[in-house]
């Protein structure tokens, strides 16, 4: 019995290790590259023989990267805040109120969730040039928040539906004013959902590449994923592999931190809208 349990455990252990390796190997490889000096870059070793921070020093000395990092953080944060605020309002209405047009709203956000971004690139490119926000922060913030709104509305309305609204009544009978009931009871209950949604939306904005290369032309609004892609062409003879790897690691770090800290919430958020609950 004990032996059977043990082989069972071993089997699961092996499976789990395989899964973890599968998930982490490409990440490990690019991290290893980022710590190699140019001389050993091509040695094919999984672990750098001579650890160096040269690549990191290099990218942080160029405004090409630092500026892009600031752009990435700023644009993603602002887009996230706006999308979550607008999404919270709409999701509250979807989850709690009865009004005609609700189905239209849901259908529309579903449609946008499925929208091919490339279809918007050409018109947005032209519109943004005409109204003068091409290659600016707003030029990226606006499409980002639009495309993350469906995600925000979906996730948030699923969370809001879970809140037992009896509690609002209970608070009122317990002597709370409507404002107190909202602040002391509803907000603490809704906060985790809003926070989770913010993480998902941030990851979405942080990840984008197509808009970032299409709607920017200079350093002034180019985000890191786009900047990395342009590192490649900067020198014809020496591939900037080390720099790209280092930059890649830098923008991966926040994602890994989110995942490590909020694993449970992210899973809950990703799956909330997808399954009837």
């Amino acid at each position: 019995m004990a032996a059977a349990g043990k082989t069972h455990a071993t089997r699961w252990g092996v499976v789990n290790v395989v899964v973890v390796l599968y998930a982490l190997f490409p990440v490990w490889w690019i991290a290893a590259l980022s710590f190699k000096d140019p001389g050993t870059l091509t040695d094919g070793n999984y672990i750098p023989r001579d650890w160096t921070l040269e690549n990191y020093r290099g990218i942080f000395q160029t405004s090409e990267f630092t500026r892009a990092l600031i752009n990435s953080i700023g644009i993603a944060l602002i887009a996230t805040v706006i999308a979550v605020i607008l999404g919270t309002m709409a999701a509250y209405a979807v989850a709690r109120l009865r009004f005609p047009g609700k189905q239209v709203l849901i259908g529309m956000s579903l449609l946008i969730a499925m929208f091919p971004p490339i279809s918007l690139v050409s018109p947005l490119f032209n519109i943004e040039r005409i109204i003068g926000i091409f290659d600016t922060w707003p030029g990226l913030i606006i499409p980002y928040m639009t495309f993350s709104l469906p995600l925000a509305i979906y996730t948030l309305s699923a969370f809001f539906r879970e809140i037992p609204w009896d509690l609002e009544k209970a608070a009122k009978v317990d002597g709370a004013s409507p404002a107190q009931a909202f602040r002391l009871v509803i907000v603490p209950l809704a906060a985790p959902g809003v926070f989770t949604t913010a993480i998902l939306v941030f990851i979405f904005c942080w990840n984008d590449f197509l808009f970032a290369i299409s709607l920017t032309s200079t350093e002034s609004a180019r985000t890191v994923p786009a900047a990395i892609a342009f590192f490649t062409g900067s020198s014809q003879f020496q591939q900037p592999t080390g720099s790209i790897a280092a930059a890649a690691v830098v923008i991966t770090v926040p994602i890994i931190i989110f995942v490590l800290l909020f694993q449970r919430r992210i899973v809950a958020g990703l799956t909330s809208g997808a399954v009837k609950g």
Binding site: W12, V15, V27, W206, P225, F258, Q263
Partner: peptide, 30 residues
Amino acid sequence: TLFLRGTVRTAVLIPYGIVTVVAAFSWQYA
């Protein structure tokens, strides 16, 4: 799976969360 469940879920979220361009470069170099 009963043990390492948290680890597995965390590991699995990394490909989801990682910037596609970063992953693509890793594959390209590989």
